[in-house]
C-alpha cells in the first residue's frame, strides 16, 4: 500500500467576504507528482498557500504525514518537510545566488540537498553563483527559487506556476528538473496554467474551477477529458 503523504479535506479559504476555496479535498501519495489545473483565479495559489500555512484556513483540515497541520505557520510546515516554491519566485534580489541558497536552515526530513546538488541540477546557477539574484533572468530566478525550496530537504514540494513567463526551452528544462525529483523520492504538488506541460510530468491531476474541484483523474484521463477544456476556457 502506498502511504498518503498529504490529505486535504473539505478545505475552505477566504479573504474577508470572498471565498476563494470551497470544500476542496485532495490527496498526494508518497513519491507522487500531482498537478492542480485551472484558469487564472481558480484558487490554485490560494490552495498552495493554505497548505503551507502562509494563508489561514477557514474550515476543513490538512493532514500531512499522518498529522494535522491545519493552520500551522509556514516555518513550522517547512520543518516537517513541506517546501513551497511560490508564484513570482520571491527570491532575495539584493543577495547573491549563493546567499539565497545558504540562508535556508530547515531540514524537512526528505533526501539531503546540498548546494552542489542544486548546482548540478541547474548548472546555470553555478555560472551566476556570486551574482545578485535580482540581476538574474526570469528563468534563472525560477531555478533559484526551486533550488532554494530544495535546500530545505523537503518530502513534499509545492510548486506554483514554475514555467510562468519562461521561454519554451527554459520551461522544458525546469519541468524536466521537476520530473527528476520524483526519482529522488520527493512528492510534488504542481500548480500550472500550462496544462500540457503539467500533465507530462504529473501522475495524477485535479481540476480547480472557481474554488471547487470539478474533476480528478490520472494524467491520461484528464488529458482526454472535456471538463478540463471548460475549466481553462471558463465556459
Amino acid at each position: 500500500m502506498i502511504e498518503t503523504l498529504l490529505e486535504v479535506s473539505d478545505l475552505t479559504v477566504g479573504y474577508g467576504r470572498v471565498t476563494a476555496l470551497r470544500e476542496v479535498s485532495l490527496t498526494v501519495r508518497a513519491g507522487e507528482t500531482v498537478a492542480i489545473l485551472g484558469a487564472n483565479g481558480a484558487g490554485k495559489t490560494t490552495l498552495l498557500n493554505a497548505i503551507s500555512g502562509v494563508l489561514p484556513v477557514r474550515s476543513g483540515a490538512v493532514r500531512y504525514a499522518g498529522r494535522g497541520i491545519t493552520g500551522m505557520k509556514p516555518w513550522a510546515t517547512a520543518r516537517l518537510g513541506v517546501s513551497h516554491v511560490p508564484e513570482g519566485r520571491e527570491i532575495f534580489p539584493g543577495m547573491t545566488v549563493e546567499a539565497n541558497l545558504r540562508l535556508i536552515d530547515v531540514h524537512g526530513g526528505g533526501p539531503d540537498f546540498s548546494i552542489d546538488d542544486v548546482l548540478e541540477m541547474f548548472p546555470r546557477l553555478g555560472e551566476r553563483f556570486g551574482q545578485l539574484a535580482g540581476g538574474l533572468s526570469g528563468g534563472e530566478q525560477q531555478m533559484l527559487a526551486i533550488g532554494r525550496g530544495l535546500m530545505a530537504s523537503p518530502r513534499l514540494l509545492l510548486l506554483d506556476e514554475p514555467s510562468l513567463g519562461l521561454s519554451p526551452m527554459l520551461s522544458r528544462a525546469v519541468l524536466g528538473a521537476i520530473a527528476g525529483l520524483k526519482a529522488r523520492g520527493i512528492s510534488a504538488l504542481l500548480v500550472e496554467q500550462n496544462m500540457r506541460a503539467a500533465l507530462k510530468v504529473a501522475d495524477r491531476g485535479y481540476v480547480l474551477r472557481v474554488g471547487r474541484i470539478t474533476a480528478e483523474g490520472s494524467a491520461a484521463e484528464l488529458e482526454a477529458s472535456p471538463d478540463i477544456r471548460r475549466a481553462y476556457l471558463g465556459v
Partner: peptide, 8 residues
C-alpha cells in the same frame, strides 16, 4: 514574503 516561503 519570500522569507516566509523559505521556512524562515
Amino acid at each position: 514574503r519570500g522569507a516566509l516561503y523559505s521556512g524562515i
